[in-house]
Amino acid sequence: MKKPAELFTVRLLINLLIVATAVFALVFTFIHNKNSDGYILGDWLINYQDGGFKRRGLSGSFFFIIQDFTGLKLNLAVYFFQVIIICGFFYTYFKIIQRKQPDLLYLSLLLSSIGFTGIFNCVDYVGKKEFIVFFIFAVFINLLDQEKLDRSKEYLICFGLLIAMFFHEITLFFMPYFLIGLYLKSGKFETKKYIKYILVTLIPAILIFLLGKEINEGQSLEILKNRGVILTKGIFFWNFDERRYISDHFNDYRLYFLSFLISLLHVGFYLKFQKAQKFLSILLIPAFLFSLPLFYLAIDWGRWLYIHMIFLIILFTLMLPKRNYDEVAEGFSLNLKNGIIVSFIIFSLMYRVEMSGRGFTWEGLLYRVFISPVELLNKML
Protein backbone atom coordinates (compact mmCIF):
# COMPACT_ATOMS: atom_id res chain seq x y z
CA MET A 1 0.00 0.00 0.00
CA LYS A 2 1.16 3.49 -0.74
CA LYS A 3 2.11 5.73 2.11
CA PRO A 4 -0.19 8.70 2.83
CA ALA A 5 2.57 11.06 1.65
CA GLU A 6 2.46 9.41 -1.79
CA LEU A 7 -1.29 10.03 -2.04
CA PHE A 8 -1.55 13.47 -0.48
CA THR A 9 0.30 15.38 -3.20
CA VAL A 10 0.15 18.93 -4.55
CA ARG A 11 -1.21 17.57 -7.82
CA LEU A 12 -4.06 15.86 -5.98
CA LEU A 13 -4.94 19.14 -4.24
CA ILE A 14 -4.82 20.99 -7.56
CA ASN A 15 -7.02 18.35 -9.20
CA LEU A 16 -9.56 18.64 -6.38
CA LEU A 17 -9.45 22.44 -6.71
CA ILE A 18 -9.99 22.19 -10.48
CA VAL A 19 -13.07 20.00 -10.02
CA ALA A 20 -14.49 22.14 -7.20
CA THR A 21 -13.94 25.39 -9.10
CA ALA A 22 -15.45 24.00 -12.31
CA VAL A 23 -18.55 22.71 -10.50
CA PHE A 24 -18.94 25.97 -8.59
CA ALA A 25 -18.62 28.01 -11.80
CA LEU A 26 -21.15 25.85 -13.64
CA VAL A 27 -23.70 25.93 -10.81
CA PHE A 28 -23.60 29.69 -10.32
CA THR A 29 -23.50 30.36 -14.06
CA PHE A 30 -26.73 28.35 -14.33
CA ILE A 31 -28.27 30.37 -11.48
CA HIS A 32 -27.29 33.66 -13.15
CA ASN A 33 -28.79 32.54 -16.46
CA LYS A 34 -31.95 31.16 -14.87
CA ASN A 35 -32.52 34.49 -13.13
CA SER A 36 -31.87 36.40 -16.39
CA ASP A 37 -28.94 38.27 -14.90
CA GLY A 38 -28.50 41.42 -16.96
CA TYR A 39 -24.75 41.60 -16.41
CA ILE A 40 -23.81 38.00 -17.21
CA LEU A 41 -26.58 36.61 -19.42
CA GLY A 42 -27.23 40.07 -20.85
CA ASP A 43 -23.62 40.44 -22.00
CA TRP A 44 -23.92 37.24 -24.07
CA LEU A 45 -27.08 38.58 -25.76
CA ILE A 46 -25.68 41.83 -27.20
CA ASN A 47 -26.54 41.50 -30.89
CA TYR A 48 -26.27 42.96 -34.38
CA GLN A 49 -30.04 42.85 -34.90
CA ASP A 50 -30.40 46.08 -32.93
CA GLY A 51 -28.63 48.73 -34.98
CA GLY A 52 -26.00 46.65 -36.75
CA PHE A 53 -22.29 46.09 -36.08
CA LYS A 54 -21.12 46.75 -32.51
CA ARG A 55 -18.68 45.46 -29.90
CA ARG A 56 -19.59 42.05 -28.39
CA GLY A 57 -22.55 41.75 -30.78
CA LEU A 58 -21.53 38.48 -32.45
CA SER A 59 -22.53 36.39 -29.43
CA GLY A 60 -26.15 37.53 -29.31
CA SER A 61 -26.65 37.10 -33.05
CA PHE A 62 -25.08 33.63 -32.81
CA PHE A 63 -27.50 32.56 -30.08
CA PHE A 64 -30.44 34.02 -31.99
CA ILE A 65 -29.54 31.68 -34.87
CA ILE A 66 -29.24 28.74 -32.45
CA GLN A 67 -32.68 29.55 -31.04
CA ASP A 68 -34.23 29.85 -34.49
CA PHE A 69 -32.85 26.44 -35.53
CA THR A 70 -33.41 24.50 -32.31
CA GLY A 71 -36.25 26.30 -30.51
CA LEU A 72 -34.17 26.38 -27.31
CA LYS A 73 -34.72 29.15 -24.80
CA LEU A 74 -31.96 31.73 -25.02
CA ASN A 75 -31.03 31.13 -21.38
CA LEU A 76 -30.38 27.45 -22.11
CA ALA A 77 -28.64 28.03 -25.42
CA VAL A 78 -26.21 30.42 -23.75
CA TYR A 79 -25.70 28.08 -20.81
CA PHE A 80 -24.90 25.06 -22.99
CA PHE A 81 -22.23 27.13 -24.74
CA GLN A 82 -20.88 28.35 -21.40
CA VAL A 83 -20.69 24.74 -20.18
CA ILE A 84 -18.64 23.77 -23.23
CA ILE A 85 -16.24 26.69 -22.76
CA ILE A 86 -15.88 26.34 -18.97
CA CYS A 87 -15.47 22.55 -19.06
CA GLY A 88 -13.10 22.87 -22.02
CA PHE A 89 -10.89 25.27 -20.08
CA PHE A 90 -10.74 23.25 -16.86
CA TYR A 91 -10.27 19.95 -18.72
CA THR A 92 -7.39 21.33 -20.81
CA TYR A 93 -5.74 22.81 -17.73
CA PHE A 94 -6.23 19.45 -15.97
CA LYS A 95 -4.45 17.68 -18.85
CA ILE A 96 -1.50 20.06 -18.59
CA ILE A 97 -1.14 19.54 -14.83
CA GLN A 98 -1.10 15.74 -15.22
CA ARG A 99 2.13 16.00 -17.22
CA LYS A 100 3.76 18.31 -14.68
CA GLN A 101 5.27 18.19 -11.22
CA PRO A 102 3.71 21.24 -9.48
CA ASP A 103 4.96 22.27 -6.06
CA LEU A 104 3.41 23.99 -3.07
CA LEU A 105 4.51 27.40 -4.36
CA TYR A 106 2.60 26.89 -7.61
CA LEU A 107 -0.48 25.72 -5.69
CA SER A 108 -0.36 28.98 -3.69
CA LEU A 109 -1.03 30.92 -6.92
CA LEU A 110 -4.26 29.00 -7.47
CA LEU A 111 -5.28 29.72 -3.88
CA SER A 112 -4.58 33.42 -4.29
CA SER A 113 -7.60 35.62 -3.64
CA ILE A 114 -7.61 36.49 -7.35
CA GLY A 115 -6.69 32.98 -8.51
CA PHE A 116 -9.08 30.05 -8.60
CA THR A 117 -10.21 31.04 -5.10
CA GLY A 118 -11.45 34.33 -6.57
CA ILE A 119 -14.46 32.54 -8.08
CA PHE A 120 -15.52 31.28 -4.64
CA ASN A 121 -15.06 34.77 -3.17
CA CYS A 122 -16.93 36.59 -5.94
CA VAL A 123 -19.57 34.66 -7.88
CA ASP A 124 -19.82 37.53 -10.37
CA TYR A 125 -16.59 36.20 -11.95
CA VAL A 126 -18.43 33.14 -13.28
CA GLY A 127 -20.10 32.82 -16.66
CA LYS A 128 -18.33 35.78 -18.24
CA LYS A 129 -16.83 35.90 -21.70
CA GLU A 130 -13.21 35.84 -20.56
CA PHE A 131 -13.60 32.07 -20.20
CA ILE A 132 -13.45 31.96 -24.00
CA VAL A 133 -9.97 33.49 -23.92
CA PHE A 134 -8.96 31.31 -20.94
CA PHE A 135 -9.95 28.25 -22.98
CA ILE A 136 -8.06 29.40 -26.09
CA PHE A 137 -4.97 30.22 -24.02
CA ALA A 138 -5.08 26.86 -22.21
CA VAL A 139 -5.29 25.02 -25.56
CA PHE A 140 -2.45 27.21 -26.87
CA ILE A 141 -0.20 26.43 -23.87
CA ASN A 142 -1.12 22.75 -24.01
CA LEU A 143 -0.03 22.56 -27.65
CA LEU A 144 3.14 24.54 -26.95
CA ASP A 145 4.07 22.31 -24.04
CA GLN A 146 3.69 19.18 -26.17
CA GLU A 147 5.47 20.84 -29.11
CA LYS A 148 2.40 20.28 -31.27
CA LEU A 149 1.72 23.89 -32.26
CA ASP A 150 2.29 23.48 -35.99
CA ARG A 151 1.29 26.04 -38.58
CA SER A 152 -2.28 24.74 -39.06
CA LYS A 153 -2.98 24.67 -35.30
CA GLU A 154 -1.47 28.11 -34.91
CA TYR A 155 -3.85 29.47 -37.53
CA LEU A 156 -6.73 27.86 -35.62
CA ILE A 157 -5.59 29.61 -32.43
CA CYS A 158 -5.41 32.92 -34.31
CA PHE A 159 -8.86 32.32 -35.77
CA GLY A 160 -10.16 31.63 -32.26
CA LEU A 161 -8.71 34.95 -31.06
CA LEU A 162 -10.28 36.73 -34.04
CA ILE A 163 -13.73 35.35 -33.18
CA ALA A 164 -13.17 36.02 -29.47
CA MET A 165 -12.56 39.70 -30.29
CA PHE A 166 -16.10 39.97 -31.66
CA PHE A 167 -17.41 38.29 -28.50
CA HIS A 168 -15.52 40.61 -26.16
CA GLU A 169 -12.87 43.24 -26.83
CA ILE A 170 -10.86 42.42 -23.69
CA THR A 171 -9.19 39.71 -25.77
CA LEU A 172 -6.90 42.40 -27.19
CA PHE A 173 -5.62 43.52 -23.78
CA PHE A 174 -4.43 40.03 -22.76
CA MET A 175 -2.94 39.02 -26.11
CA PRO A 176 0.66 39.72 -24.88
CA TYR A 177 0.51 36.52 -22.82
CA PHE A 178 0.36 34.53 -26.06
CA LEU A 179 3.55 36.23 -27.22
CA ILE A 180 5.27 35.54 -23.89
CA GLY A 181 4.24 31.88 -24.15
CA LEU A 182 5.82 31.64 -27.61
CA TYR A 183 9.04 33.14 -26.32
CA LEU A 184 9.23 30.92 -23.22
CA LYS A 185 8.93 27.82 -25.40
CA SER A 186 11.30 28.80 -28.21
CA GLY A 187 13.73 31.00 -26.27
CA LYS A 188 13.91 33.44 -29.17
CA PHE A 189 11.94 36.30 -30.66
CA GLU A 190 9.83 35.22 -33.64
CA THR A 191 8.59 38.48 -35.11
CA LYS A 192 6.55 36.98 -37.95
CA LYS A 193 4.58 34.83 -35.52
CA TYR A 194 4.01 37.74 -33.17
CA ILE A 195 2.61 39.86 -35.99
CA LYS A 196 -0.13 37.27 -36.68
CA TYR A 197 -1.34 37.33 -33.08
CA ILE A 198 -1.21 41.11 -32.96
CA LEU A 199 -3.11 41.60 -36.22
CA VAL A 200 -5.95 39.15 -35.47
CA THR A 201 -6.75 41.15 -32.33
CA LEU A 202 -5.79 44.66 -33.41
CA ILE A 203 -7.71 44.77 -36.72
CA PRO A 204 -11.07 43.82 -35.12
CA ALA A 205 -10.36 46.37 -32.36
CA ILE A 206 -9.89 49.11 -34.97
CA LEU A 207 -13.07 48.08 -36.81
CA ILE A 208 -15.05 48.08 -33.57
CA PHE A 209 -13.67 51.48 -32.58
CA LEU A 210 -14.35 53.08 -35.97
CA LEU A 211 -17.59 51.37 -36.99
CA GLY A 212 -19.09 49.97 -33.80
CA LYS A 213 -22.42 51.31 -32.60
CA GLU A 214 -23.83 51.48 -29.08
CA ILE A 215 -24.55 48.23 -27.26
CA ASN A 216 -28.20 49.25 -26.98
CA GLU A 217 -29.45 51.13 -30.03
CA GLY A 218 -32.95 51.28 -28.57
CA GLN A 219 -34.49 47.97 -29.64
CA SER A 220 -32.40 45.37 -27.77
CA LEU A 221 -34.74 44.96 -24.80
CA GLU A 222 -37.77 44.58 -27.07
CA ILE A 223 -35.95 42.06 -29.28
CA LEU A 224 -34.95 40.01 -26.25
CA LYS A 225 -38.46 40.22 -24.76
CA ASN A 226 -39.88 38.80 -27.98
CA ARG A 227 -37.38 35.96 -27.67
CA GLY A 228 -38.35 35.14 -24.09
CA VAL A 229 -35.76 37.06 -22.05
CA ILE A 230 -36.83 39.98 -19.88
CA LEU A 231 -34.00 42.03 -18.38
CA THR A 232 -34.57 44.69 -15.73
CA LYS A 233 -30.95 45.67 -15.10
CA GLY A 234 -27.52 45.07 -16.52
CA ILE A 235 -25.39 46.06 -19.46
CA PHE A 236 -28.30 47.25 -21.62
CA PHE A 237 -29.14 49.81 -18.91
CA TRP A 238 -25.50 50.87 -18.44
CA ASN A 239 -25.38 54.61 -19.00
CA PHE A 240 -23.06 56.47 -16.71
CA ASP A 241 -19.53 57.84 -16.63
CA GLU A 242 -17.34 55.02 -15.30
CA ARG A 243 -14.31 57.26 -14.79
CA ARG A 244 -16.45 59.61 -12.73
CA TYR A 245 -17.73 56.63 -10.74
CA ILE A 246 -14.18 55.51 -9.95
CA SER A 247 -13.29 59.05 -8.90
CA ASP A 248 -16.36 59.36 -6.66
CA HIS A 249 -15.67 55.98 -5.01
CA PHE A 250 -11.90 56.24 -4.87
CA ASN A 251 -11.81 55.52 -1.13
CA ASP A 252 -12.94 51.99 -2.04
CA TYR A 253 -10.99 51.74 -5.29
CA ARG A 254 -7.66 52.72 -3.78
CA LEU A 255 -7.74 49.42 -1.87
CA TYR A 256 -7.18 47.67 -5.22
CA PHE A 257 -3.64 49.02 -5.04
CA LEU A 258 -3.19 47.04 -1.82
CA SER A 259 -4.55 43.88 -3.46
CA PHE A 260 -2.32 44.48 -6.46
CA LEU A 261 0.75 44.95 -4.25
CA ILE A 262 0.02 41.70 -2.38
CA SER A 263 -0.35 39.82 -5.67
CA LEU A 264 2.79 41.47 -7.04
CA LEU A 265 4.79 40.28 -4.02
CA HIS A 266 3.25 36.81 -4.39
CA VAL A 267 4.15 36.50 -8.09
CA GLY A 268 7.57 38.04 -7.42
CA PHE A 269 8.25 35.42 -4.73
CA TYR A 270 7.20 32.71 -7.20
CA LEU A 271 9.50 34.05 -9.92
CA LYS A 272 12.40 34.16 -7.46
CA PHE A 273 12.62 30.38 -7.70
CA GLN A 274 12.33 30.17 -11.52
CA LYS A 275 15.26 29.90 -13.91
CA ALA A 276 14.18 32.68 -16.27
CA GLN A 277 13.00 34.92 -13.45
CA LYS A 278 14.67 38.19 -14.51
CA PHE A 279 13.78 38.16 -18.18
CA LEU A 280 10.28 36.82 -17.53
CA SER A 281 9.72 39.60 -15.00
CA ILE A 282 10.70 42.13 -17.65
CA LEU A 283 8.25 40.56 -20.13
CA LEU A 284 5.38 40.56 -17.64
CA ILE A 285 5.67 44.29 -16.93
CA PRO A 286 4.61 45.42 -20.46
CA ALA A 287 1.95 42.66 -20.47
CA PHE A 288 0.36 44.30 -17.43
CA LEU A 289 0.90 47.86 -18.70
CA PHE A 290 -0.85 46.89 -21.95
CA SER A 291 -4.04 46.28 -19.95
CA LEU A 292 -4.00 49.66 -18.17
CA PRO A 293 -6.64 51.18 -20.51
CA LEU A 294 -9.12 48.71 -18.98
CA PHE A 295 -8.49 50.17 -15.53
CA TYR A 296 -8.97 53.67 -16.94
CA LEU A 297 -12.12 52.95 -18.96
CA ALA A 298 -14.05 50.43 -16.83
CA ILE A 299 -14.86 49.91 -13.16
CA ASP A 300 -14.20 46.14 -12.95
CA TRP A 301 -10.69 46.48 -11.48
CA GLY A 302 -10.93 43.24 -9.51
CA ARG A 303 -11.98 41.40 -12.63
CA TRP A 304 -8.94 42.62 -14.59
CA LEU A 305 -6.60 41.53 -11.76
CA TYR A 306 -8.34 38.14 -11.66
CA ILE A 307 -7.90 37.65 -15.43
CA HIS A 308 -4.20 38.50 -15.17
CA MET A 309 -3.70 35.92 -12.42
CA ILE A 310 -5.50 33.18 -14.38
CA PHE A 311 -3.29 33.88 -17.40
CA LEU A 312 -0.19 33.72 -15.18
CA ILE A 313 -1.31 30.43 -13.63
CA ILE A 314 -1.69 28.88 -17.09
CA LEU A 315 1.49 30.48 -18.46
CA PHE A 316 3.66 29.27 -15.58
CA THR A 317 2.81 25.64 -16.35
CA LEU A 318 5.35 25.91 -19.18
CA MET A 319 8.09 26.25 -16.55
CA LEU A 320 6.93 23.41 -14.32
CA PRO A 321 9.16 20.31 -14.46
CA LYS A 322 7.92 17.27 -16.32
CA ARG A 323 6.31 14.58 -14.24
CA ASN A 324 8.44 11.54 -13.47
CA TYR A 325 5.97 8.68 -13.18
CA ASP A 326 8.55 6.46 -11.47
CA GLU A 327 9.39 9.01 -8.81
CA VAL A 328 7.89 8.46 -5.35
CA ALA A 329 5.92 11.48 -4.16
CA GLU A 330 7.44 13.31 -1.24
CA GLY A 331 5.57 14.71 1.73
CA PHE A 332 5.60 18.36 2.66
CA SER A 333 8.78 19.29 4.47
CA LEU A 334 8.85 22.03 7.07
CA ASN A 335 11.34 24.72 6.07
CA LEU A 336 11.51 28.49 5.73
CA LYS A 337 10.33 28.53 2.09
CA ASN A 338 7.30 26.32 2.75
CA GLY A 339 6.53 28.29 5.91
CA ILE A 340 6.34 31.50 3.86
CA ILE A 341 4.19 29.76 1.23
CA VAL A 342 1.74 28.43 3.80
CA SER A 343 1.52 31.94 5.29
CA PHE A 344 0.73 33.29 1.82
CA ILE A 345 -1.99 30.69 1.37
CA ILE A 346 -3.65 31.34 4.73
CA PHE A 347 -3.51 35.10 4.19
CA SER A 348 -4.92 34.75 0.66
CA LEU A 349 -7.87 32.74 1.99
CA MET A 350 -8.63 35.49 4.50
CA TYR A 351 -9.18 38.45 2.17
CA ARG A 352 -11.43 39.13 -0.78
CA VAL A 353 -11.13 41.24 -3.93
CA GLU A 354 -14.50 42.26 -5.33
CA MET A 355 -15.05 42.59 -9.06
CA SER A 356 -15.82 46.29 -8.75
CA GLY A 357 -16.16 48.58 -5.76
CA ARG A 358 -14.24 47.31 -2.74
CA GLY A 359 -10.68 46.40 -3.59
CA PHE A 360 -9.87 44.64 -0.33
CA THR A 361 -12.02 43.23 2.48
CA TRP A 362 -11.52 40.60 5.16
CA GLU A 363 -14.47 38.61 3.77
CA GLY A 364 -12.39 35.92 2.11
CA LEU A 365 -12.99 32.20 1.83
CA LEU A 366 -12.23 31.51 5.51
CA TYR A 367 -14.71 34.22 6.49
CA ARG A 368 -17.38 32.70 4.25
CA VAL A 369 -16.80 29.17 5.54
CA PHE A 370 -16.36 29.77 9.27
CA ILE A 371 -17.80 33.20 10.16
CA SER A 372 -20.70 33.93 7.78
CA PRO A 373 -22.68 30.79 8.74
CA VAL A 374 -22.27 31.64 12.43
CA GLU A 375 -23.44 35.22 11.84
CA LEU A 376 -26.43 33.95 9.85
CA LEU A 377 -27.31 31.44 12.57
CA ASN A 378 -27.03 34.16 15.20
CA LYS A 379 -29.44 36.37 13.26
CA MET A 380 -31.90 33.51 12.91
CA LEU A 381 -31.82 32.82 16.64
Rank of each mutant, 00 (worst) to 15 (best):
V267I: 15
L26P: 02
L143S: 11
L312H: 10
F62K: 06
D37C: 11
L334R: 15
S356M: 05
S61Q: 14
I85A: 10
A205C: 03
V139E: 04
P286Y: 06
F135W: 14
F240T: 02
I163T: 11
Y367D: 07
V27G: 06
K148R: 12
I180T: 05
G118K: 04
G118F: 06
L13W: 15
L172P: 00
I203W: 10
Q277S: 14
T117D: 02
I208Y: 01
F295A: 04
L16Y: 13
F140E: 02
N338E: 10
L349W: 02
K275Q: 12
F344C: 03
V27H: 08
E375D: 09
I341E: 02
Y256E: 06
S61R: 03
L271C: 08
L265P: 11
T201I: 09
L292A: 14
L211G: 02
F94D: 07
L12A: 12
I310T: 03
N75Q: 15
Y351G: 05
I136R: 09
S108F: 01
I66C: 11
L7S: 05
V342S: 11
M350T: 12
Y177C: 05
K153P: 01
I136H: 08
K73I: 04
N226K: 14
E375K: 15
I206C: 05
Y270S: 03
P321M: 08
W304P: 00
L13V: 12
F269M: 07
G160S: 15
L111Q: 08
G218K: 11
S348E: 14
N335A: 13
I157E: 00
V353L: 04
I66S: 04
E354S: 13
V126W: 01
Y79L: 11
